[in-house]
């Protein structure tokens, strides 16, 4: 058991990468939920996107998906770039309107 676990540790496979991706995802989620600053939230979103990408590429390496996984990862990067540009433009607009970028202070839709 002991040696099996060490051997498992010594041979990084699909599961290892998936676990890294899971930890990255959780950290990104934490950032998105708990940080006040919009830009921090955006950075958390980037982290989540990267964890997803890591999953894709890991699957493309270790399963029959082959290069399709990488291709999807490429498109995710493209979309992330577009998202970042638009999101930052929105942030600038929010800043112009509310003179703050703290999400807890922006609650016009309070019921």
């Amino acid at each position: 058991m002991e040696s099996t676990f060490l051997q498992w540790l010594a041979e990084p496979g699909l599961t290892h990468y998936l676990m890294v991706s899971a930890i990255l995802f959780s950290l990104g989620l934490l950032a998105v939920i708990s940080r006040k600053n919009v830009i921090m939230v955006l950075m958390g979103v980037e982290l989540i996107l990267n964890s997803a990408n890591l999953n894709f590429i890991a699957f493309s390496r270790f399963t029959e998906l082959a290069l399709d996984g990488q291709m999807i990862a490429l498109f995710v990067i493209i979309i992330a770039a577009a998202e970042a540009a638009v999101a930052l433009a929105i942030v600038l607009n929010i800043y112009n309107r509310f003179k703050t970028i703290n999400l807890n202070e922006i609650s016009l839709m309070k019921g």
Binding site: V41, I106, M109, K110
Partner: peptide, 10 residues
């Protein structure tokens, strides 16, 4: 239900 609507995205 309005109580739930805090207006905060997070």
């Amino acid at each position: 239900l309005g109580k739930i609507q805090t207006g905060k995205v997070q």
